[in-house]
Each structure stands twice: as structure tokens, then as C-alpha cells.
């Protein structure tokens, strides 16, 4: 039990009580909505848990360090940024995954660039973005975001 768990669950309980007090029906409705999204994300969460288990159970920390660790330098960070841009997974599971990287001995820079590229850049959703915003805007936004993510990660590595 840590502070975050207490905070989050406390917020949820208070929110739920307030909701039930103001409008019972909508309160129940929002629980249903939460349940639906929980069921929807459950398989993805379980998949990531298994992957993290295999990753931490099998990949020796030295190997990870070689690829994305301090010694690999900018190449590892760039590689992670590309992977983060291509992968299309919800941020809810991205955070535990990034935490497992850190546990394996990857530097802060790698975890930060992974989370940031994952949320900001979408190669999979690029066609959609092009359709809505035009190819110039879409390509530029993803390109600029890629550089931005690298900048954020490098600064984080320097500060933390």
C-alpha cells in the first residue's frame, strides 16, 4: 500500500459518493461506463503483464543496458523513440512498461522518450491524421513531436 494507491482509491470513493448523492442514476451509469472500459482494457493489461514478466525474468539487465543503457548512448534512445512512435498501446499500460525498463537498468532518458513518443506520435493513426489535418500538418506535427520527445527525454536524463 503506498500513498498513490490510497490517493487514487480515495478520489474514486469520494467521487462515487458525491455522484450517488447528486444523482443516483447517473452514478450507477458511470460505474457501468467504468466497468465497460475496464473490460475493454483488461486483455491489453494482462498481455503487458505477461510481457513484462518474460522481459524481467529472461532478459539479463546487462543485455538491456547494452541496447538501451548508459553505454549505448544516443543510439539506444533513438531506437526507443522509433519503437515508441510505431507501437500503438494505451498510455495506461505504457507506464508500467516504462517502469519495467527502469527496473532493468535502462536510464531515465529511455523511459521518458518511450512514454512521450508513445503518446504524442502515432504512425498507426497517421492516415487518420492526414485525412483530418492534411499531410503537411500531420507529417510536420509527428516530426516536430519526435524532436520534442527527444528534447524532453534528454533534459529529463540531465535533471534526474
Amino acid at each position: 500500500m503506498n500513498v498513490t494507491v490510497l490517493l487514487v482509491n480515495g478520489l474514486a470513493v469520494i467521487g462515487l459518493l458525491a455522484a450517488m448523492y447528486t444523482d443516483r442514476e447517473r452514478g450507477i451509469d458511470s460505474i457501468k461506463r467504468g466497468l465497460v472500459s475496464f473490460v475493454r482494457i483488461l486483455p491489453t493489461v494482462l498481455t503487458i503483464v505477461v510481457i513484462i514478466g518474460l522481459l524481467l525474468g529472461f532478459v539479463p539487465p546487462e543485455t538491456i543496458r547494452q541496447f538501451v543503457g548508459d553505454r549505448s548512448g544516443p543510439v539506444g534512445v533513438l531506437l526507443t523513440a522509433v519503437v515508441g512512435s510505431v507501437l500503438h498501446i494505451p498510455s495506461i499500460v505504457a507506464f508500467p512498461l516504462a517502469a519495467s525498463f527502469l527496473e532493468l537498468g535502462a536510464p531515465i532518458t529511455v523511459a521518458a522518450v518511450f512514454v512521450t513518443t508513445l503518446t504524442m506520435i502515432g504512425v498507426v493513426t497517421l492516415p487518420l491524421e492526414v485525412r483530418e489535418l492534411g499531410w503537411r500538418f500531420a507529417l510536420l506535427r509527428n516530426g516536430v513531436s519526435f524532436l520534442g520527445a527527444l528534447l524532453i527525454a534528454v533534459l529529463m536524463g540531465a535533471i534526474l
Binding site: N9, L11, A12, L16, S30, G34, I92
Partner: peptide, 10 residues
Amino acid sequence: LPAVMVLLGL
């Protein structure tokens, strides 16, 4: 996760 989902639902 359940608490986060409740917050999302709310």
C-alpha cells in the same frame, strides 16, 4: 486500475 476506471466513468 479499478479506481482509475471509476474516475474515467464518472
